[in-house]
Simulated assay, not measured.
Amino acid sequence: MFAQRLSATRRGARLARMLAVHQLDQWGFPYGSPVSEAVALVVAELAANAVLHGRVPGRDFELRLHRAPGHVRVELSDTHPAHPVLPALDPAAEGGRGLLLVDAVATRWGTAARTGPGKTVWAECATRES
């Protein structure tokens, strides 16, 4: 398992993505591999949501990665109580596609309660290993 607390800033979101692909490389999923690319996208979108929508002043967010047979689970926890909802696709919208991307790339995703304030948003990406 990998866990890291990061500042709820754009820099923290960028660092979360970089740390995730580094950890995947350490686990044997090289940079640029399909698994690395999928997890990088999921982490980038969930971290951006934590910074833009889940930010509570003075509070960080936490990234956790779990390697399990057949998938990597990404968990991102923030202290904002609102749970994300998958939006309807609006081709005219300039934003709001992050969860649609997560839904397309991950095998499944959802939210969970956490100890303390806020929630955890999680997503699982297939690794095609047994």
Rank of each mutant, 00 (worst) to 15 (best):
A47Y: 06
A8L: 00
V43D: 08
H53S: 11
A106I: 06
F2P: 01
A40W: 04
A106N: 00
L76M: 00
A44Q: 05
L63H: 01
V74N: 03
R5D: 14
T115Q: 14
L6K: 11
V43P: 08
H66N: 02
F61W: 10
G95N: 14
G58C: 09
L24P: 12
A92P: 14
R67E: 07
W27L: 14
W27H: 02
R73K: 04
V102E: 02
A126W: 03
E129L: 12
P87M: 12
H80Q: 08
T107M: 11
T127E: 01
D60M: 12
V121S: 09
E62S: 08
R59Y: 04
T120G: 06
A20V: 01
P87Y: 02
R73A: 09
A44S: 13
D103H: 15
D103S: 15
V72K: 15
P81M: 06
A106Y: 00
A112Q: 15
A92M: 13
N49P: 06
S7W: 07
V105W: 09
L15K: 13
H71K: 00
M18W: 11
E129P: 02
A104M: 13
R59F: 10
F61H: 13
V56G: 00
M1Y: 03
V56R: 00
L41Q: 04
R59N: 02
E37M: 01
F61D: 05
H80W: 04
R11M: 06
V42Q: 00
R67D: 11
V51K: 14
R108H: 03
L101E: 14
P84N: 06
S7Y: 07
H53E: 11
G12Q: 00
G70A: 07
P91I: 12
A123E: 03
A126G: 01
A93N: 01
A104S: 12
S130I: 05
R55M: 11
A48H: 15
A82Y: 02
A113F: 02
G96V: 10
G118M: 10
G118S: 08
E94V: 10
L41I: 00
R55N: 07
R59E: 10
P117I: 08
R11S: 01
T127G: 06
L86P: 03
T79N: 03
R73H: 00
Q4S: 10
D103A: 13
A92K: 15
L89C: 11
A68Q: 12
L76K: 12
R10I: 08
V72I: 15
D90H: 14
S33I: 04
